[in-house]
Design a protein around this nucleic acid. Structure first.
Lengths: 141, 141
DNA sequence: CCCCGCTGGTTTGTAATGCAAAGCACGATG
DNA sequence: CATCGTGCTTTGCATTACAAACCAGCGGGG
């Protein structure tokens, strides 16, 4: 069945990319989740609950995660004017710089791989991947 | 630059699939890593060091991982005739059954996503993904 | 108005994951 | 056969994660 082969390829590819992300993240003392958090916060300022839901994590897990990132100065908590219970999270300049740097490294680490494709095949692959998940999700990546 | 878009799509897709794997794994008390271990052991019987290296984990980490999987009866340690220091790891029938079941669920969870593509686009995507990583790696997935 | 329930976050307790360093057993090499 | 190196386990520690208990603030019904 062709769909099985596609799923297998997706899973295999996933572990491959996770390996790259984990390795490069570790070089900057960032776990996979922290990396993802920084990536998301590059262009968002969600509240704790939103972020936790999007990551598929418990609120309490996110509390600790943000605690440590905040202590490192990568992230900060802000008050919400509408609702004083709510805590908004946003990235600091230092966090943004680190995020851009790490994602640059990720790009460099993956381009030798992606370059194995013809340019038009790469375009096509990007389009197909984009078509897989584009609807619904609005917090990226 | 088109390569950036491709890398972004790959990373986004990775987190998406990781989410699915984590969720389905959790329903069977399996972490992402344990899931991967079971997947690998479906058709391999590596030694501890080989497996650790392939997973990108420390030997000591794998020790604990295999300990717990062994206690659950999913995996077992075997002696190696050539070198008595070596510990070979292999999957038990119960572990194999669980692995097949979980990977079936993963397929079912991902097919609604993959079905969003035309069949020939799916084929093409599988081929392109396969072309990305095929050489070098020989422990799958 | 005020009490009560609901929602948003944090805290606490526990288990799993992961690394690093030390330890132990075995093989290999001089 | 003594020593070094390899393969794995053990121990100690930080991080990640969940669940349950907790506190604070919002909002309705009386």
């Amino acid at each position: 069945m062709t769909s099985d082969a596609l799923v297998d390829a997706l899973v295999r590819n996933t572990f491959e990319v996770v390996g790259v992300l984990t390795r490069i993240g570790a070089e900057h003392d960032l776990s996979l989740t922290q990396l993802r958090v920084l990536g998301i916060l590059r262009d968002r300022r969600p509240r704790m609950t939103e972020l936790a839901a999007f990551l598929g994590l418990d609120k309490s897990t996110l509390s600790g995660l943000i605690d440590r990132a905040e202590q490192r100065g990568l992230v900060a908590r802000g008050k919400n004017a509408q609702d004083r219970r709510v805590v908004d999270v946003f990235i600091t300049p230092a966090g943004l710089e680190l995020a851009e740097q790490v994602y640059d490294e990720v790009r460099r680490a993956l381009t030798p791989v992606t370059d194995r494709l013809d340019p038009q095949d790469g375009d096509q692959l990007a389009k197909l991947l984009h078509g897989l998940h584009s609807p619904g999700r609005d917090l990226a990546p």
